[in-house]
């Protein structure tokens, strides 16, 4: 009874989550951000620059994977629960006879959905513009980075969503993780690759199109299991935390 009710609740909560995440000013800004790779693809095309590796490294990796993906994911991932906790509307979801894992699953699906949509679409359009005329290699590179966006969306959103249940400053901590851990530190300490969502994404992308080893450090056969473990661990943690959800203290 509880189980069927929980499963039936998922699409309802997903729907609410989508309406919460979209239709705000930040969605417009994120659309603009998603337009940057497309804009650069048009620039490359206009310059007649037919270099698959150059576009893949200079735009798809440097802009789409490094910048667009984590920013979209950190905003949507932390907002899925963050906004509800802040407004107190989370009680309307939690004071219901449905399992907390179903609430986590629904929030996750909603946030991953919009993140994937925005980031994969951005790479698809940018790739089609610049790589379209470049034959099979161009198509392979585009597929590779679409896969990277997909894996990255699932990974980042899982981590940031879970983070938002543990701290109110999830957005800033997520930003520091992306900039410092994956950005500055991983260039200094290559071992961080095993613990970097960015590298998981690029590793999976390697299955479709081989990148330079210093760019994508993991093979697909390591990257995919690591990414799956990360998502599962993060979501289990989120459900565990939501089960113990307490209202913020006070003497009121």
């Amino acid at each position: 009874m509880m189980f069927t009710r929980s499963v039936a609740a998922i699409p309802l909560i997903v729907q609410i989550t989508l309406r919460q995440l979209l239709g705000r000013r930040r969605t417009v800004l994120l659309l603009l951000l998603a337009g940057v790779p497309v804009l650069l693809a048009i620039v490359f095309r206009a310059a007649n620059d037919a270099d698959v590796a150059g576009f893949a490294t200079g735009v798809l990796d440097a802009v789409a994977v490094t910048l667009l993906l984590p920013i979209v994911a950190v905003l949507f991932g932390t907002a899925a629960f963050g906004a509800e906790i802040e407004d107190g509307t989370i009680l309307y979801l939690l004071a219901k006879p449905i399992s907390r894992w179903a609430v986590v699953a629904a929030k996750y699906l909603g946030a991953v959905g919009v993140t994937t949509l925005l980031t994969v679409a951005s790479v698809l359009v940018a790739g089609a513009i610049e790589m379209g005329p470049l034959g099979e290699e161009g198509a392979a590179a585009t597929r590779a980075f679409m896969a990277a966006m997909l894996v990255g969306s699932f990974g980042y959103v899982a981590v940031f969503l879970t983070l938002s249940l543990f701290t109110r400053r999830a957005l800033l901590i997520g930003l520091v993780y992306v900039l410092v851990w994956e950005g500055a530190l991983s260039t200094l300490l290559p071992g961080i690759a095993n613990l970097s969502i960015r590298q998981f994404s690029l590793g999976v992308a390697n299955a479709f199109w081989q990148m330079a080893p210093d760019e994508a450090r993991l093979t697909p056969s390591t990257a995919l299991p690591l990414a799956i473990i990360l998502v599962v661990v993060a979501l289990v943690l989120a459900a565990w935390k939501l089960m113990r959800f307490e209202l913020p203290g006070g003497t009121d």
Partner: peptide, 25 residues
């Protein structure tokens, strides 16, 4: 504050990357 911070990161990173990419192309 958090959204402003994200906006600043996006701006500074984009301005570091995009002009350079266009310049190289």
């Amino acid at each position: 504050r958090a959204y402003a911070a994200v906006g600043l990161v996006a701006y500074f990173l984009l301005m570091g990357i995009v002009p350079d990419v266009i310049f190289q192309v």
